[in-house]
């Protein structure tokens, strides 16, 4: 399962997520979605720290963020 997932069809390409990402792993895809925007995307999933800054800045509820459960004991 991906740590950070983009519902690209909702993305308006505003880039606020990219600017907020401390890992600088969000890029705007060269393709266009059906609304005509270059959607935000992440290819280096393993570098995501699940901070959710991107999701917090996204005005369009594009992003779902997950993290691994901490192993107890």
């Amino acid at each position: 399962m991906l740590r950070v997932e983009f519902d690209e069809e909702r993305c308006k390409g505003c880039e606020l997520c990219a600017a907020a990402c401390p890992q600088r792993i969000i890029v705007m895809a060269p393709r266009l979605n059906t609304m005509g925007f270059h959607p935000a995307t992440v290819t280096e999933q393993e570098r995501c720290i699940s901070c959710a800054f991107c999701a917090r800045m996204c005005p369009d509820v594009v992003i779902t963020v997950r993290k691994e459960e901490k192993k107890r004991g």
């Binding site: 606020l16 996204c58 005005p59 369009d60 509820v61 992003i63 779902t64 691994e68």
Partner: peptide, 29 residues
């Protein structure tokens, strides 16, 4: 994996009519 961020229940799945980057979307959320 646990979800740390997803669409809140109090928002509908509708796409907003707001311009790209308009912060209304953040405030709604």
């Amino acid at each position: 994996m646990i979800t740390v961020f997803e669409r809140p229940k109090s928002l509908t799945p509708a796409k907003t009519h707001y311009c790209p980057g308009c912060t209304h979307g953040i405030i709604h959320r």
